[in-house]
Amino acid sequence: MTRVAARWAALVSLTVVTLAFVGPFLWVVLASLQPEANLTAKPTFRFSLENYAAVLNWETVFRPVINSIIISGTTAVLTVVVAGLAAYPLSRYKLRFKRHFMLTLLFTTGLPVTAIMVPVYSMFFRFNLYGSVPAMVLFLAASALPFAIWMMKNFMDGVPVSLEEAAWVDGAGWVRSLLRVVAPLMAPGVAVVTIFVFVGQWGNFFVPFVLLDTPEKQPAAVTIYTFFSQYGQVAYGQLAAFSIIYTAPAVVLYVAVNKYLAGSFSFAGSVKG
């Protein structure tokens, strides 16, 4: 096979893959714009924003989306702050149990935490935390922490200690050197971790579904499920419009950090403790 042929073969394959991935999206986009949408992605020449208008109300879209922003936002900020603090000594000092700790974290990353939602519900109920948004956020943050600490430490390792030493000479403590010197330099890393956690929680359905009580507290992930199961076979267009409104923020955020994303997935060399 010549190079040119190989190149074309690769391009054709990539086109096929791309189309296959675009396929399932088609319906959502088309149906959301068609006033009489059904389950088939078949465009007619009548486009309208009726479906969007129909779902853009407090109970269907605004309240759940605001809840999602609060839940995902506080989880992301809390996780990043706590992980950033924890990463500092792990990155900067020689500590006796560091290797063990890092390996434990890695081990924890692997535990299927969502698989234990039943006992988690039981525990939340027993300690009177069922229905509490702050308690759920703490649980979400804890489950995101191991991975976040890992990533933060890796990013922090990339910031040269020499820069910090200059700050130490000036008499700055670790708090100041972390805030003034390290944090700005790892801004891209912080952004990646924040968005990683945020988007992860944005789509999280199981945890709020089990741990929150009333509809007023539910994030969009849960209300869209209710909408899907209740109106999914009737109001296709509205379901599609709701899907797009709900998905858009996650996609936009990812596009924003796409540039830095690839670098965070290098696993080789990240396990040397």
């Binding site: 999914g232 709900y246 990812y254």
Partner: peptide
């Protein structure tokens, strides 16, 4: 290619279910 593949990843699971259901 990256954009499309990643978009599918970013889509919340319930929306993914709705896409595939249709």
């Amino acid at each position: 290619v990256n954009g499309v593949v990643i978009a599918a990843w970013v889509v919340p699971e319930v929306v993914a279910a709705a896409c595939w259901f249709s």
